[in-house]
């Protein structure tokens, strides 16, 4: 019968700490610890080292051009990751690139999370025409490859950190809206919502106080994984020359600049990539661990 309420997962009934239990479960996994460890190390280095290092990431030094990294012949302790075609220290430049990339990605995810969740709850809980319009828009937007959308905007709009962030938000929000909408749709049919309505609670009260806290567990890992995804996009924009412009270092523009020297000084385009990938792997390990934790929780294994 149409009036019947949806089924509930076993983990739900047992209460509030779903979020906390998910994080505890993730914390018990080696992969999460490794990810967190590497991430902390990299971010720590990115925060501290550029300030302490004697090298300015932008300063050109003709005498120190094309120095190979420490593990190659001719490498020195002074330049762990070598130097680029203009004699700039790649280690410092990569760390600054990490700062920029991670900052932009995190900001973008935070914003798209808020926007997507808000629209998703509205769409799922209130439904009707808001829902129809919103879902058609997300449909449309998910039908345009992110890159086409992004480069179309960035190629003409004088890229800076704000426009890059804005483009990422524009590209990313529909997924949150859709996931959250489906959660809100399911929650709307649950008994406690009916209970609250009978008590006389307003829709706003139900949506903010009761439905919103249920959003986090299923979507937290999406957000974590998305930080990595957005970092890749940010780097890609830099690589295509439509991200943050040189000389400000970003992973993308360092790689793009060094592309020409691929054959003779291969470390210039690849070393920043190594830092980028380390960061991405650490984030992805954390996100994937969270996802596994969530799956376990909702399967009721624990």
């Amino acid at each position: 019968m149409a009036a019947e309420t949806g089924t509930s997962s076993p983990a739900r009934g047992r209460g509030e700490s779903v979020t906390r239990r998910m994080f505890r479960l993730a914390w018990e996994m080696t992969s999460f610890k490794i990810g967190l460890g590497v991430f902390t190390l990299l971010v720590g280095a990115a925060i501290i080292w550029p300030e302490l290092s004697p090298y300015d990431p932008m300063k050109i030094s003709v005498r120190e051009r094309f120095l190979p990294p420490i593990f190659l012949e001719g490498g020195t302790w002074a330049h762990l990751a070598g130097t680029d075609q203009l004699g700039r220290d790649l280690f410092v430049r990569s760390l600054v690139g990490l700062r920029n990339g991670l900052g932009i990605a995190a900001a973008a995810v935070a914003i798209m999370f808020v926007i997507g969740c808000a629209l998703g709850v509205i769409s799922g809980y209130w439904g009707r025409w808001v829902d129809i319009i919103l879902m058609r828009i997300t449909d449309a937007q998910l039908s345009i490859p992110v890159i086409v959308l992004a480069i179309t905007i960035l190629s003409v709009s004088r890229p800076n950190p704000f426009t890059v962030t804005a483009v990422l938000v524009l590209a990313g929000w529909p997924i949150y809206a859709r996931v959250v909408r489906s959660i809100a749709l399911a929650e709307r049919e649950r008994e406690y919502v009916r209970g609250a309505k009978i008590l006389g609670a307003s829709d706003l009260r139900i949506a903010t106080l009761m439905i919103s806290p249920n959003i986090l567990p299923p979507i937290a890992f999406v957000a974590v994984l998305d930080i990595a995804r957005m970092m890749i996009f940010e780097a890609l924009f830099g690589f295509l020359g439509i991200g943050i412009q040189p000389p400000t270092p970003t992973f993308g523009n360092i790689i793009a600049d060094g592309y020409k020297y691929l054959v003779n000084s291969w470390w210039i385009p690849t070393m920043p990539g190594v830092f980028l990938i380390l960061t991405l792997i650490s984030i992805n390990l954390m996100g994937a661990s969270l996802e596994r934790a969530r799956n376990k929780l909702f399967k009721g294994i624990v």
Partner: peptide, 16 residues
């Protein structure tokens, strides 16, 4: 005028 729902596990928001 109040109504008590069936399932004591789902009738109340779980995190309160």
């Amino acid at each position: 005028f109040q109504l008590l729902l069936q399932d004591p596990y789902n009738a109340m928001p779980p995190h309160m």
